[in-house]
Amino acid sequence: MSTSRDDFGIAIRSALLQRGAKQKFSLFVLILVSIAVFSLDTLNLKPIKVLRSFINDGVYRISAISSSPIKFTSATKSFLTDHIFLYKENEKLKIELEELKKQKLKTSFLETENRKLQEVVQLDKKSVFITLGAKVMMDKNSPYLNSAIINKGSNSKIKLGMAVLSKGHLVGRIVEVNYISSRILFLNDLNSRIPVVISPDGDQAILSGSGREKPILEYLPENFTVEDNQMVYTSGKDGVLISGISIGEVNEDLEEKRIEVKLFSDPNQIFFVNVVLGQSTDVEEM
């Protein structure tokens, strides 16, 4: 019994301390170094943060270049798939166009009505987002992370928590800022939680990433029921995200008995994004 324990001890000691002919470090030394690096990084010291920011910038650039062949393959695949389904998509678009024509007439009427009402209250508040365009350098879709790296960082006044839009809809927020690059955490990531409001009833909820394609709605009111055309917008309750940014449409997953949100912008199909730097509010004098 003691012999087998001795053998185990000898084999482990040998594995930890032995260095091969071409090895400069033993496993033991490198494990200690890793623990030291880990401890320093989790302590969140400012010099370490700055150092990590520079390392991130460097690694992201190299990674963007080295992953370009994979990106090219993915792009070619999606290009071919799009072409195969072109006819089907055309038919679908025709139907959508008819729908939109009908809605346009309705919208025109509502616009006129809205203008008249604004004249009554003498308020014409026009709000626009101040955004910054950025290119997605690389995106990650793995069991651990749904995020993307963009080519703008603190040098372009990007800050932690800023909202990120794609085609005018929210896709995520900034969770890491380096000098010339930043990381976006997508809404469907497991770590994503944002306060939202559901129109038209104005119910409040938390949009939580589930690691899957569609994020889910949590902390809904008890009497909440899913209806047609329920849209989800940011509520701005966290004091970080600007309120009123469109996110997606409410869907009910009957199989898993949960309420999901079908995002307006698919995080897996993003090449360019807009980071919301702020909101400019102009009050026009009537």
């Binding site: 482990i12 032995q18 496993l27 690096v37 880990f38 990084d41 690694v59 992201y60 651990y144």
Partner: peptide
């Protein structure tokens, strides 16, 4: 860095996989 983990996490896990392999080898 790529997966946005705290620095040293994957390094430690890779080194422990190496340790198991080195032990089995011995």
């Amino acid at each position: 860095v790529i997966l946005s983990f705290p620095l040293g996490t994957s390094a430690l896990s890779f080194l422990f996989v190496s340790l198991v392999a080195a032990y089995v080898r011995n």
